[in-house]
Amino acid sequence: MIRHAGLGLSFDPRDSDDIELKIQYALDAIPKSRSNIGYLDWVKIGGMIFCAVGEDGFDIWHEWSAAGEPGTYLGEESCRDKWIECCKFTEFGRDGASIFMLADKFDSRRVWRMAYATAHANQLRADQARCILARGGQ
């Protein structure tokens, strides 16, 4: 990376992370059933998302919550009310590490990380192709 510093955008997946995409893949590894994730854990996961991406994280948390166990999701308004509590958490890092470690706990083979790496690399390749087309194919 240093060798190429100043030469423009890097499309090497090792040089960047799409934190929101990575969180979505991490959430896929975390069971949504109340037997695995209790109410307090659910709110803490919201806090982890908030600490990593801020207000934009509500949509990610809401979508994940809505896909949970039938009968446990009380709707977007209720979810938004709890989001206010999530915003009070400050002990989780801004890099998403807390939620990634939780995902690793449930997915010891770290399949979610491999799936994220593939999706991220594909996204970067698509971005690179768009840049080339925008420059006239050069």
Rank of each mutant, 00 (worst) to 15 (best):
L21H: 02
L21R: 14
K22E: 13
K22R: 15
K22I: 06
K22F: 06
I23R: 06
I23G: 02
Q24H: 10
Q24G: 12
Q24Y: 03
Q24N: 11
Y25R: 11
Y25P: 00
Y25T: 03
Y25C: 09
A26C: 13
A26T: 10
A26K: 13
A26I: 13
L27A: 09
D28Q: 15
D28M: 15
D28L: 15
D28G: 15
D28H: 14
A29N: 10
A29K: 03
I30L: 11
P31R: 00
P31C: 04
K32F: 00
S33I: 04
R34F: 12
R34G: 10
R34I: 11
N36A: 13
N36H: 14
N36V: 03
N36C: 11
I37Q: 08
I37R: 06
I37N: 06
I37C: 09
G38K: 09
G38A: 10
Y39G: 12
Y39W: 15
Y39I: 13
Y39P: 05
L40G: 08
L40Y: 12
L40M: 14
D41Y: 00
D41G: 09
W42I: 01
W42M: 07
W42Q: 01
W42C: 03
W42R: 07
V43L: 13
K44W: 03
I45C: 04
I45A: 02
G46C: 08
G47H: 03
G47T: 01
G47A: 02
M48N: 02
I49N: 08
I49A: 05
I49W: 04
F50D: 04
F50R: 03
F50E: 04
C51V: 04
C51M: 01
C51D: 06
